[in-house]
Design a protein around this nucleic acid. Structure first.
Length: 426
RNA sequence: GUGACCGUAGCUCAAUUGGUUAGAGCACCGGACUGUGGCUCCGGGGGUUGGGGGUUCAAUUCCCCUCGGUCACCCCA
């Protein structure tokens, strides 16, 4: 074929679609346990929904075009702006806190890489209208419980959490101003991936004096919470942040996920709109990209021109997660499954086979038979290949008497049955 | 967007220093075993060697361009 699928877009053959469905079904099931309800929005949105504010980072990677009506439109690169609009439109009518999840297919125009395509399915779980840290813990517990539902353990997957308010407070103490913060966040985000020298160079290029640079690294060399508290716990401006984080970990303990989580001040997340506790889930061996990321974005709804509601949420894509599940042997191997194969010894019995298939299908069974008049040995071979558990073998004389043979395809055992009774028992 | 490496049937790979109609295994379809499958044997379809151009008597093999893939960077979901 000369017309291949576009780069970065996937075709799902049966086994691949089965894997995708396994992931999505598990997401739905756990979201349901946590009492989140599912919503969805348009896959195509006005371009301005993303260019207006959101993150300017996204704009360069938008899958956008002009439609036939002259509108500038974009395939959705993320779900949050749509959700923000939906919440704002009915903010007064919706019971708070609003607990929503959605599983949109998202699109980005960028170079394909491992774990990163131009299209993916992403679970979004969000809570709107709750400012208390309990909601932050509930959200992370949901993400972690999903890992558990996939059969992964706390030695397969780790969660790292931080709080942008604490990080900001610590940096402000060192004399960093709000204008310098974005540049510093960008460097903090790369703390464990790049050598210190190149990070310092970046800060310097961002206009920071060496004095500040030294102080920034001084703060960041205490990644664990206890050390930070010992050192900065008495600072009045930070007291609230330490109290909140302590409560956060208490909640995580009560929700049963504490042992999956570690504090890491260097987690800031790329998106500019996060305002509070942020987190990432990643494989413990650090072989793959982040599995999931999220946090609190209290001011986003208002910034997008909607209601002023506190909000928090996370996104989890199917691509990295799928890679991890396969690598850890947690992805079910798909095989076809047919309940009953109706085989006929004589092509003249094909119509009888169809009538019997019809009756079994009416009863909800998955039934297949040879569409072309194949010889019996072919039919049974096909029945095995189709994953049929049993074959109903029709013979002219037996059928005349209302009998048939049921052959179990795994053991080869055969039993003679009264056809009507056997069908009725299904 | 930048850089490096790699492109032979659906998949995994062959093809002697460039040498005739590019082969094999698996998979698929069919035949043999003619009231019963998984084994075995036999056969079949399927490749303008990613595409285009160049060098040569001759290119899967050498050179250039292009497209695609992989990895890293960038950026992030």
């Amino acid at each position: 074929m000369s017309l291949d699928a576009l780069p970065g877009f996937r075709e799902f053959y049966p086994s691949e679609l089965a894997e995708r469905n396994f992931i999505i079904d598990t997401w739905r099931e756990v979201a349901r346990r946590y009492a989140f309800v599912e919503v969805d929005g348009p896959p195509l949105e006005p371009l301005e929904l993303y260019t207006r504010k959101s993150g300017e980072e996204i704009v360069g990677q938008l899958y956008s075009f002009t439609d036939k009506g002259g509108r500038e439109v974009a395939l959705r690169p993320e779900m949050t702006p749509t959700l923000a609009r939906m919440v704002s439109a009915k903010a007064n009518a919706l019971r708070k806190p609003i607990r929503w999840f959605s599983i949109p297919q998202l699109f980005r125009y960028e170079r394909k890489q491992r774990g990163r395509l131009r299209e993916h399915f992403q679970l979004n779980v969000d809570i709107f209208g709750e400012a208390d840290v309990t909601a932050d813990a509930e959200l992370l517990a949901t993400a972690i419980d999903m890992m558990r539902a996939f059969g992964l353990t706390s030695s397969d997957v780790r969660a790292r959490v931080s709080d942008r308010r604490l990080l900001r407070g610590l940096l402000v103490l060192t004399g960093i101003t709000d204008e310098m913060l974005p540049g510093v966040y960008a460097v903090v985000d790369k703390l464990d991936r790049e050598p210190r020298a190149s990070l310092e160079a970046k800060l310097r290029a961002g206009g920071l004096h060496d004095v500040f640079i030294g102080r920034v690294f001084e703060v960041l060399k205490h990644p664990d919470l206890d050390t930070l508290r010992d050192r900065y716990g008495d600072v009045p401006e930070l007291r609230e942040d330490f109290t909140r984080l302590a409560r956060y970990f208490e909640c995580l303990e009560a929700l049963g996920v504490r042992d999956w989580v570690e504090f890491d001040l260097s987690i800031v997340r790329g998106l500019a709109y996060y305002t509070g506790i942020v987190f990432e889930l990643f494989d413990a061996k650090r072989e793959l990209r982040a599995i999931c990321g999220g946090g609190r974005y209290d001011s986003l709804l208002k910034q997008l021109g909607g209601t002023d509601l506190p909000a928090l949420g996370f996104g989890m894509g199917d691509v990295v997660l799928g890679e991890l599940l396969r690598a850890r042997g947690r992805m079910p191997v798909w095989s076809p499954a047919v309940d009953v194969w109706v085989a006929y010894a004589d092509a003249g019995l094909l119509d009888d086979a169809m009538r019997i298939a019809r009756r079994l299908r009416d009863r909800g069974r998955s039934v297949e038979f040879a569409l072309g008049g194949q010889q019996l040995s072919r039919q049974l071979k096909a029945a095995s290949a189709a994953g049929a558990r049993e074959a109903l073998v029709l013979q002219p004389e037996e059928l005349e008497r209302g009998d048939a043979v049921v052959r179990r395809l795994d053991t080869g055992d055969e039993t003679r049955v009264r056809l009507d009774e056997w069908i009725g028992a299904h």
